[in-house]
Nucleic acid binder design. Sequence first.
DNA 1: CAGGAGAAGGTTGGACTGAAT
DNA 2: CCATTCAGTCCAACCTTCTCC
Length: 686
Amino acid sequence: MSFQAEEQEFDFSYTFEYSQDRQNEPGTDAYSYTPNVSLSLPLGMGSPCLATQYHTLQTSPVSSVSSCHQTGYSLQNDNHNASGYYLPHGLRSNGAPALESPRIEITAYSHYPEDEVEESSSEDPIIKRGVNSIVTLTLPNADGYRDPSCLSPASSISSRSCNSEASSYESSFYNYDNSPQNSPWQSPCVSPKGSSSLLSCPHASGPATSPHHSPSTSPQIGAVAEEGWPGQLRGSRPNSPCYSGGNGGGIGKRKHSFNGTPYHHTSCSPIHSPIPSPHGSPRVSITDDSWLTSTNQYTNSAIVAAINALTTDGIVDMGEGIPIKTRKTMLDHSSSMSLKVEPSGEGTDGELCHEDYPSRLALKKENYCGGFLDVPQHPYSWSKPKPYLSPSLPALDWQLPSCSGPYNLQIEVQPKSHHRAHYETEGSRGAVKALSGGHPVVQLYGYMESEPLTLQLFIGTADDRLLRPHAFYQVHRITGKTVSTASHEVLQSNTKILEIPLLPENNMRAIIDCAGILKLRNSDIELRKGETDIGRKNTRVRLVFRVHINQPNGRTVSLQATSNPIECCKSHLPLVEKQSLDSYPASGGKMMLLSGLNFLPDSKVVFVEKAQDGHHLWETEAKVDKNSIKSVSTTVVVEIPPYRNQRISSPVHVNFYVCNGKRKRSQYQRFTYLPPNGNHQALFTF
DNA sequence: CAGGAGAAGGTTGGACTGAAT
DNA sequence: CCATTCAGTCCAACCTTCTCC
């Protein structure tokens, strides 16, 4: 099949509806596709295995897939949809022709003040940007340069920061890969490894784009140095146990297949993963004041990449500073780790691919293991298929619906609200657990095909802004005897993604017992040029699950579900995990049991009601049963205070939090005051 | 081939230290 | 400048799994 031919079919258009209503609830989306939006896959890509590799974005106004997404958030600015996000093929939002070759657009955007951004966020940023003049540089290989992991630790900080495929808007418009000329398969800089979005990338690509790459010359550093993670280059840092890939990293340790039978070891499954978890999210962080400007950052950093591209030969660059022998070793590594599936024991690779994992893996494996061993001799002679076309998937910060048509992606069991993430310098701290003691469970409803799908998992933000990959946390693959769910890691937009099989025989249900959380050092991330998020006290994350479902018509529906927030620090902040009551009449007086962490005898529980503009309408301290707390407790009993207005006619949503001191507050918890019985009924009869 | 001892590695909780606030 | 908080590192105990005898 011809990728180019298929690319021609791309109708690269998206319809977005933007809601200013923030959402933090799982499964809700502030951004969502319009009901008829789907991500389409060109013909011949019906296999789910291909979905994650060769996705293209496509929106069809005639798509019959309707969204059943129930977010409860209003959709606004519909007037911008068509003009802003629904882009006819071949036409950019600003009216310019679609990019036909990799290029960088240098746009002199002014930075929006923070609040201006907030305001403008409801508007079509593309429109806004469209007024700016754009200078275009053609990139021989955009993809290769965009991959942050392809950049040297020494020089990549700024470069990496620009690699923001995850930046939604840019992703949609800098769709290099959708251009035949931009096909990574032809890309000079798409390293056999680097071209992959998979783990392997870092190895070959580290030196690839950086003339200043120094660590590459040190085979000892190996993958770590070549990862392009500044922090990993620090000689003082010990080899992190996490590099071993979890508790199953030990040689000869038993592995499990999807069905629980032992896997066979294959060359594709390294015993010791050279791929450290620590892939800082190279995405450009979209912050309060950078939601729009972040795209600018992307552009600017893309310029850097373009300059690199134009001033260096891709091939030479790829190996620059690395002895051939070293490069070969690296290639071997990457090829072996490119498919980070559970080892299958004595089976051949082929067996693994075809039997234990859907054909998608087979394809990947072929591509990786085969392609990575070869170093293209000429930038444009690289004709091997790119195994993973992440840019054609929806960017990771695009808000996708959890439900579309018959499909519904649901988190059946939510993760615990606290999970101590581990650092690179630490060993794994295990998989994220569920409150009940098990693990989170995700299920796809409405899928009746026999073809397995791939569930993607990455770590997203949990702040008040739009969901996006978390810059300071990455998902970390956990393996071992206690892990029943197989998984493997891939990189998309330099955000590590865990791919987990969704099997029809399991009712498209997956137990997420294979996902830990890795904390990247703040300094490493913050030093990136373009990174505007700060890591300090930015410790809440959400698990983001995605699934891409191929349709018979060649289109693909992408769904996303997000978990409840997870506090990842080990701080001593109080944490409310459960509350015995979610609602109670305004009269209050009822005792409510809170369970969680770090409740102290002098903890206070404060009920707060805020107006939509954020200012406090009401605040009162609830009576805490001091006897219910002995030293540091996991439970506390509080008396629900009466609401300020006893005559409410409709339910009133308020919040409460547990406070252990001036700056030691738990997250807000929701609570609803109900009107007296009669009124309540009346409310709904209206 | 089974069982025990030891090694290796993963998990977990917490202490320590320096930086930031 | 000091106190507090936080981030990051390190350590130790415990556990599981594997290897060797």
